[in-house]
């Protein structure tokens, strides 16, 4: 059953993924078990295939959609059983940039890994990031930029968080084609993630380190 669930996610079959989750739950499987042993390893496999250029963006989107279908059934149960989310992540593509596919994949994979995600969408102005962090008390702020011309917005956000004294309370993670490890250091972000899997690993690390 787990194998089938994983395969459904890996092959991007959302109806099947949903059906297998439903069946497994009916058989009395624990939601957290289905998540940790089914959805998460499946998305890790998808990430591997992406790294090896066996999967491309459409395949990853399809898998993420299947994972989300399964997760939709699990999430209310996890909340009911008082499983705390691993952490709260505020996420968005910076102002001037509408490229949100990568950011959406990161959001879905983070949710799949047990994070609560508040997605601000694309073309997000600096103040919107700052206010969302302030209001939600998020542990992590994730910003994405595909265009090098827009990545400077990230630096503006970091500066504003500092000015308002909330920088120490939040970990900042950046990603997207326009961003690198060097750039993350330069703007004093806490981490750079090159893809969705690395985003999950780094988000976990950043939540533990607090």
């Amino acid at each position: 059953m787990l194998e089938e669930l994983r395969n459904a996610v890996i092959s991007g079959a959302d109806k099947k993924a949903e059906e297998f989750v439903r069946q497994a739950l009916a058989e009395g499987k624990e939601p957290i078990f289905l998540m940790n042993e089914g959805l998460i390893p499946a998305m890790e496999e998808v990430g591997e295939r992406f790294n090896h250029k066996e999967y491309f963006v459409p395949e990853v989107l399809l898998s993420a959609r299947a994972m989300k279908a399964g997760l939709a059934l699990l999430r209310p149960l996890l909340t009911e059983q008082k499983f705390q989310p691993v952490g709260l992540v505020v996420l968005g593509t910076v102002q001037g940039d509408l490229h949100d596919i990568g950011k959406n994949i990161v959001g879905m994979v983070l949710e799949g890994a047990g994070f609560q995600v508040q997605d601000l969408g694309a073309d997000v102005p600096p103040d919107k990031f700052v206010n969302a962090v302030k209001e939600s008390g998020a542990q992590i702020l994730g910003m994405s930029a595909l265009l090098t011309t827009t990545r400077t917005v990230m630096a503006t956000v970091v500066k504003k968080l500092k000015e308002q004294g909330i920088r120490p309370g939040v970990r900042i993670m950046v990603g997207g084609a326009a961003v690198s490890d060097d750039y993350a250091r330069k703007i004093e972000a806490d981490a750079f993630a090159k893809d969705a899997l690395e985003a999950v690993a780094k988000a976990r690390e950043l939540t533990v380190r607090r």
Binding site: L62, H99, I101
Partner: peptide, 10 residues
């Protein structure tokens, strides 16, 4: 763009 990417399958 996301819809166009998914559309190759859906």
């Amino acid at each position: 763009t996301e819809r166009a990417a998914l559309a190759v399958y859906t």
